[in-house]
Nucleic acid binder design. Structure first.
Length: 109
DNA sequence: CAGTTGACAGTCC
DNA sequence: GGGACTGCCAACT
């Protein structure tokens, strides 16, 4: 690949259609690398120019520290979400008490 | 130039 | 089902 690793990651993320998501591992696999962390690092640095919220963890959770921001995008794009059951009226952390429905939202080329 | 760090993943307990 | 440990790769100090 002639592009830098970072550039390739941005291309993959930019290729993810609205309403769909892909895991870091999937993106890394597309690049032929297994560095899921490397992908995450690129998003941390160059992710400002791409829909980073479409790239999530294998857990179905958005990037650390940006759960609420990502949630806004998901609700806006209609991305399938799975809210954690709350058996109590305790504080409901929108930023962390939800997970993406990877089974339905996972993007596959 | 070597070690540390980090928007992670997979496996084991 | 959830927590802990290890493995990966690229950028930063």
């Amino acid at each position: 690949m002639q592009l830098d690793f970072g550039g390739a990651v941005l291309l993959i993320v930019a290729d993810i259609p609205s309403g769909r998501v892909a895991t870091y591992g999937d993106v890394a696999a597309m690049l032929g690398s297994r560095g899921a962390r490397a992908v995450g690092r690129i998003m941390a640095t160059e992710g400002s120019s791409v829909p980073w919220w479409r790239v999530v963890r294998s857990d179905g959770r958005p990037p650390a520290g940006h759960g609420l921001v990502a949630l806004e995008h998901y609700r806006d794009e209609g991305t399938p979400l799975r809210w954690l059951a709350t058996d109590d009226d305790a504080e409901f952390d929108e930023a962390n008490d939800y997970r993406l429905d990877l089974a339905a939202a996972r993007w596959r080329p």
